[in-house]
């Protein structure tokens, strides 16, 4: 048993870039076993928040606790972060990308990776440079889901990809998500056909949270789908 029942606690997080205040005091608490949607238009601070949690950015103020741990090497090992930018080496084959990634992480599950490869309909011999954006997005997802990391952060996994890749990714997440042992944050600026994936959602607007809560409760309270609420808030 772990010390904390919260997978992630963020308190009054602040981050300023030279020209813009990206996070103006953001607080969230994610219980274990849930999938959260971090929703907001481009530039709302979603990536900054995820990068701070992943330990890739140093916040200017506030606190972060991952599974009860303060930011540290130990905390970092508990996190699988998939950035929006494409970090795959284009000269590698799909198989080489998986082997290369496996070498970095002790929690890599070869069998799960094999299952996901098949499910995502990726050819292990295909070169990364020959893959479509949707296929590269599928591959990036495997890199996170083949690990048993308790906290998974996906930054814009659905951005600019075809509907069939989006559906595969949604289903892949649902199939592989390990219930109580895992917690996931998925950021997106287009809610569309992904809202049924989320236990709870956070609306981030110019560095401030303007709505958060359990997705079903929000639908009941406002009589609207999350997608319609999103459109209304960010109209």
């Amino acid at each position: 048993m772990r010390a904390s029942e919260q997978a992630l606690v963020v308190r009054d997080l602040r981050k300023r870039y030279p020209k813009v205040e990206a996070l103006k005091g953001v607080s969230i608490a994610l219980p274990k076993g849930e999938i959260w949607g971090l929703l907001g238009p481009n530039g709302s601070g979603k990536s900054t928040l995820l990068k701070c949690v992943a330990g890739l950015l140093q916040p200017d103020g506030g606190e972060i606790e991952v599974l009860g741990l303060p930011p540290s090497r130990e905390a970092k090992a508990e996190i699988a972060f998939v950035p929006e930018v494409d970090t795959l080496y284009r000269w590698m084959t799909v198989r080489q990308v998986l082997d290369f990634t496996a070498a970095f992480y002790q929690d890599w599950q070869e069998e799960t990776a094999g299952e996901l490869l098949e499910f995502m309909r990726l050819d292990p011999e295909a070169k990364v440079s020959s893959l479509s954006k949707g296929m590269r997005a599928r591959l990036k997802l495997i890199l996170a889901l083949a690990r048993t990391a308790p906290l998974i952060l996906l930054d814009e996994p659905f951005s600019g990809i075809d509907p069939s890749s989006r559906d595969r990714i949604v289903e892949g997440i649902i199939r592989q998500f390990k219930g109580e042992e895992q917690t996931m944050i998925i950021s997106t600026h287009a809610v569309g056909d992904t809202e049924q994936l989320f236990d709870a959602v956070v609306f981030l607007d110019e560095g401030t949270i303007n709505l958060q809560g359990n997705a079903e409760d929000l639908r009941t309270r406002w009589g609207k789908s999350i997608n319609d609420l999103f459109k209304e808030v960010f109209a």
């Binding site: 076993g33 849930e34 949604v170 649902i174 049924q196 994936l197 236990d199 997705a215 079903e216």
Partner: peptide, 17 residues
Amino acid sequence: QRELAAQLKVNANTVQR
């Protein structure tokens, strides 16, 4: 519950509920 969640592409906690 797991199978229906995957089939409907819906969060497993929602199906559980």
